[in-house]
Amino acid sequence: MKPYVWIPVALVVAASHVQAQQNESRPDRMVRATIDGVMAAIHNDPVAAKGDADRIYRIVQQKFLPNTDFMLTTQYAVGKEAWAKATQAQRDALFRQFQTLLARTYATQLMQIRGQQTQFKYPPMAALPSSATDAVVRTQVVSGGDTMPIDYRVHKTDAGWKIYDINMMGAWMIVVYRQQFAGQLAKGGIDGLIKYLVAHNEANA
């Protein structure tokens, strides 16, 4: 039996506090931990590992969404003018439906790169000034000899760094969806956009 080692509680708390501060000051660590956590959960789940869309979506909900700020994403995608006119109930509905769309879209991408041979690389990130509240974390997905860059835009919140935009295939998702949403808003206003998102999510459930 190994001898019992007593560690002062104050020392444990202090060490945890230091680690939390380090993670908070390094958005790249948050992004890497998030991606690695999602992929590990997929690989360790026999059903998800075989490409089950629903199981992968659930993993995204559990492991990815907590480290996002898709309310901010929704606000930017809807646009300043429309967001200002929306009621709180409409904003909540837009957020719920858009977050579902984003989570399913991300899960679909993971289905295509879930193979054991896929590697995730994290290029070194330059140190950020202590006053920084926004940053871009660059990653690479290497699969079958091809390298696909995926960038994550993050911002600092009271709960730490959160992902709010993703660049895949050279396009930031906020820009892409802002263009789509503008057409829906022009045709049916905010309620029309909500109905569009609901219909889209139901069709892809």
Results as ranks from 00 to 15, higher is better:
Pro124Thr: 11
Ile190Ser: 00
Leu102Asn: 09
Asp191Asn: 15
Lys80Trp: 04
Arg114Asn: 12
Val142Lys: 03
Met1Thr: 12
Asp36Lys: 09
Thr100Asp: 06
Ala135Trp: 05
Gly189Cys: 05
Gln62His: 11
Asn204Pro: 06
Gly115Phe: 11
Trp161Asp: 00
Ile190Phe: 05
Arg26Gln: 14
Ala132His: 03
Val141Gln: 05
Lys85Leu: 09
Pro27Trp: 05
Val18Cys: 10
Asp92Val: 13
Met39Ala: 05
Lys121Phe: 01
Ala86Gly: 11
Val136Lys: 10
Asn201Cys: 11
Lys50Ala: 09
Phe181Leu: 07
Phe70Gly: 08
Ala171Met: 12
Gln112His: 13
Lys121Trp: 01
Gly183Thr: 09
Ile113Ser: 06
Ile166Met: 04
Met111Lys: 13
Val12Asn: 05
Tyr196Gly: 05
Pro123Ser: 06
Val176Asn: 01
Gln99Asn: 08
Pro123Asp: 05
Leu72Trp: 12
Thr118Val: 13
Ile150Asn: 04
Asn204Gly: 04
Phe95Pro: 03
Leu72Arg: 15
Gly192Pro: 12
Ala159Cys: 07
Asn204Trp: 07
Gly144Trp: 03
Lys63Gly: 04
Phe70Leu: 11
Ala86Thr: 12
Ile163Thr: 00
Thr157Met: 11
Pro124Gln: 04
Tyr57His: 05
Arg138Ala: 13
Val142Leu: 04
Pro66Asn: 08
Gln109Asp: 10
His155Thr: 15
Arg55Ile: 01
Ala103Gly: 07
Ala127Tyr: 00
Ala15Trp: 09
Ala41Lys: 10
Tyr57Thr: 04
Arg29His: 09
Gln184His: 15
Ile194Ala: 03
Gln112Arg: 09
Ala127Ser: 07
Thr157Glu: 14
Leu110Trp: 08
Ala53Ser: 09
Thr34Asn: 01
Gly170Ile: 11
Ala15Val: 10
Arg32Met: 12
Phe181Asn: 01
Ile190Trp: 02
Gln19Ile: 08
Asp69Ser: 04
Gly189Trp: 02
His200Ser: 15
Tyr122Ala: 06
Tyr76Glu: 14
Ala10Asp: 15
Val198Cys: 09
Thr34His: 01
Arg104Ser: 07
Ala48Ile: 03
Arg96Thr: 10
Asp36Leu: 14
His17Glu: 12
Gly37Ala: 11
Gly188Thr: 09
Lys2Tyr: 10
Ser130Trp: 00
Ala199Ser: 13
Asp151Pro: 04
Gly170Cys: 07
Ile166Trp: 02
Leu197Glu: 01
Arg58Cys: 02
Lys195Asp: 15
Lys80Gln: 11
Val137Cys: 02
Leu11Phe: 10
Gln90Cys: 12
Asp151His: 09
Thr105Ile: 05
Arg58Thr: 12
Ala205Met: 08
Ala82Ile: 07
Lys121Ile: 04
Gln119Arg: 15
Ala205Glu: 06
Ala107His: 02
Ala82Arg: 02
Asn44Arg: 15
Gln179Cys: 01
Ala203Val: 13
Gly79Ala: 13
Thr118Ser: 06
Gly183His: 03
Thr68Lys: 03
Lys2Asp: 09
Lys85Ala: 12
Tyr4Ser: 13
Tyr57Gln: 02
Gln112Ile: 14
Thr108Leu: 06
Leu102His: 04
Ala10Asn: 13
Gln140Gly: 06
Ala103Thr: 08
Asn44Val: 07
Ala20Asn: 01
Gly144Pro: 02
Arg96Cys: 00
Val5Arg: 09
Gln99Thr: 15
Ala49Trp: 14
Thr147Met: 06
Ser143Val: 11
